[in-house]
């Protein structure tokens, strides 16, 4: 049973960086390029882990603690995430609140580490991060609460394992709308386009990248890995909506799940290919719009 429960966590820990490759390959395909090799994210992390460390004179212990705490928070969130019919390591009513606040913990420490450098660029990124974070967090909670409302379930695993198949049979439109809301939250929380441009070269236009300018070596590896895991978590929330409800062998479930993650990766890549980054003042409109959709879905069945 325990080994079974560890499978989703191991899948996440192993394959999370690969999701980035899927996005990059998709973007490269539509741009007519070959794109970086599939294993490039792993190589990056290995290279960074092998490097020496340079810390700014301005920084304190907090700067060094930042990547550790945020990676820990995201890793712990994995224990609550359901995958198919495999039971999660831990489930209790309201565990999705814990998940949301763990991710917020990660955000706080990345922001504080950025402020610790005393650089105005990084503080600018931090300011934007807390701004968009303050908006996406309610939307995420609202979306999961909507799901929980329609599923009449309180914990993430019961919502996804028994609630979602039930909603499919009653009102699939709810799940389609929520998938869209989760997708917007994913784009915003993971600094993807159209909220943030992960490939930009001008510090003034960055959000996430500018906050981690001063991280290097193993610390940057932790941050990169944390980002990969975070992307994985949000994608799991979407893929979980489309997992088959019938009892299947574990191997098949994993295969379906990974294929689903691939589809999400392609969707992100497509979005990034088709859209440019929004102006900063337009971003709140996008996030609040997603929140409104979620409120609408929440009240949908009620009438």
């Amino acid at each position: 049973m325990m080994t079974l429960m560890m499978i989703p966590i191991c899948l996440a820990l192993c394959f999370a960086p690969l999701l980035r490759s899927v996005i990059n390959k998709t973007k490269a395909f539509f741009a007519g390029r070959k794109g970086p090799p599939w294993l490039q994210p792993y190589r990056d992390i290995r290279k960074l882990l092998g490097k020496d460390a340079v810390y700014s004179k301005t920084t304190t212990w907090l700067f060094r603690a930042g990547p550790l705490v945020s990676l820990t928070g995201v890793m712990l969130a994995l224990t609550l995430l359901p995958m198919g019919s495999i039971p999660t390591l831990l489930a209790f009513p309201g565990d999705f609140l814990f998940l949301a606040y763990l991710l917020a913990q990660g955000r706080l420490f990345v922001v504080l580490a950025a402020l610790d450098t005393g650089s105005s660029f990084e503080a600018m990124g931090a300011s934007r991060e807390v701004q968009f974070g303050a908006l996406t967090e309610p939307v995420l909670l609202l979306a999961i609460a909507t799901l929980s409302h329609h599923a009449s379930m309180f914990s993430l695993s019961s919502i996804y394992q028994t609630g979602v198949p039930d909603i499919w049979s009653r009102a699939p439109i709810i799940l389609l709308i929520l998938a869209l809301v989760f997708f917007v939250v994913l784009l915003s929380e993971n600094s993807r386009m159209p909220v943030d441009d992960p490939t930009t070269h001008l510090e003034l236009t960055m959000i996430h990248e500018v906050m981690v300018l001063d991280h290097g070596g193993p610390d940057l590896a932790f941050i990169e890995y944390m980002q990969a895991l975070k992307l994985w978590i949000f994608s799991t929330l979407i893929v979980g909506l489309f997992m088959p409800s019938i009892e299947l062998p574990v191997g098949l479930q994993c295969a379906i799940f990974l294929a689903g993650m691939g589809v999400v990766g392609v969707a992100i890549g497509l979005t990034e290919t088709m859209m440019a980054r929004l102006r900063m003042e337009k971003v709140p409109q996008l996030i609040v719009g997603a929140g409104m959709l979620s409120v609408f879905t929440l009240l949908l069945e009620v009438f």
Binding site: A53, Y55, S56, T58, F121, L213, D214
Partner: peptide, 9 residues
């Protein structure tokens, strides 16, 4: 493990 100045772009 070195120390340096904060990257000021």
């Amino acid at each position: 493990v070195q120390t340096g100045v904060t990257w000021g772009c």
